[in-house]
């Protein structure tokens, strides 16, 4: 089945747009590489960029369910598979570029993966993604059975933890980006816990989603302050203080707050707008007119 068609074989604009968008980061990196715009170590820069995008795509894959539930937009599920497969493709490219940076000395690549714990973690995460990608087809769902398939694919949460850990451990001194991703990942996990506790069909009530945004941000701030306290011994209160201003640049807790509040805003808009349920169907009919 072509990725831009829905299950009835019609063109799905949603799927087509998402499918095309998934190529954009990779093409951007490739273009920058070709133009010599990636600095003195272009392979290294490209492999880092692809790694960062792998984690971002994993986040997007995992936010499909919260979005689908909160927006009452069941069709959104149709893009989750391609998001997940793209996550794997980016991760595989990330490792390929790492090998290229090691001049394709595969023995060296293997020994590095074994002897550096953050590489071991990243590699295990990649193996996990490969397993999920390989079992992502309809045929595999049928073969495994829905229940076993779902259990297997719950591995994605563990992969998320491994991926963020790998991201965090490879940082030299600036842990801002991995801390943001850790905060967002925590938010995704809390959303699912709240869904189990208060949800109707997994859907978390708006008050809980609203409350979750500052909680995730605060946890991000506390995590970061704790990290710097343990690492360099600076007062956690002083670090937390910078989260209330922009004096030390945009802080991870602020980014997490902005993204999670944006989610709340989308939910609110959805509640207020309540679009006419028929518009999508009419649009689809226009795109795929049935022969008279």
């Amino acid at each position: 089945m072509r990725p831009w068609l829905d299950r009835t074989g019609h063109l799905s604009p949603l799927k087509a747009i998402v499918f095309a968008a998934l190529f954009v980061p990779a093409l951007w990196v490739a273009g920058a590489f070709a133009l010599g715009a990636l600095g003195g170590r272009p392979l290294h820069a490209a492999l880092l960029q692809m790694g960062v995008w792998t984690v971002r795509l994993l986040f997007l894959t995992l936010i499909v369910t919260p979005l689908r539930q909160s927006l009452q937009w069941p069709r959104l599920i149709s893009v989750r598979r391609m998001l997940g497969v793209a996550t794997f493709a980016y991760a595989a490219t990330h490792l390929t570029l790492y090998s290229a940076d090691q001049s394709f000395n595969l023995a060296k690549v293997a020994s590095e993966i074994i002897s550096r714990i953050y590489l071991t973690i990243g590699f295990v995460a990649l193996l996990g993604l490969a397993t999920l990608a390989a079992t992502s087809t309809d045929a595999m769902v049928r073969r495994l059975g829905a229940r076993a398939w779902r259990r297997l694919h719950q591995l994605v949460y563990l992969i998320g933890v491994l991926a963020v850990t790998h991201f965090f451990l490879q940082s030299k001194a600036d842990v801002g980006q991995p801390i943001i991703m850790a905060g967002l990942f925590a938010w995704l996990m809390f959303y699912r816990v709240l869904g189990k506790l208060f949800g109707k069909g997994g859907r978390v009530p708006l008050w809980a989603v609203t409350l979750l945004a500052p909680v995730a941000s605060l946890l991000t701030a506390l995590g970061e302050a704790l990290y710097f306290w343990l690492k360099v011994g600076v007062s956690p209160l002083r670090v937390l203080d910078t989260d209330l201003s922009l004096i030390a640049g945009i802080r991870p807790a602020q980014v997490v707050l902005a993204i999670t509040l944006a989610f709340v805003a989308i939910c609110l808009l959805r509640l207020l707008a309540k679009p006419d349920a028929g518009w999508r169907q009419r649009w689809r009919q226009r795109l795929n007119p049935r022969p008279a």
């Binding site: 001194a173 710097f228 690492k231 360099v232 600076v234 002083r238 670090v239 910078t242 004096i247 030390a248 640049g249």
Partner: peptide, 10 residues
């Protein structure tokens, strides 16, 4: 040097 506002660096 704005990064020096990030006082957790020594």
């Amino acid at each position: 040097a704005p990064e020096q506002n990030q006082f957790w660096y020594p």
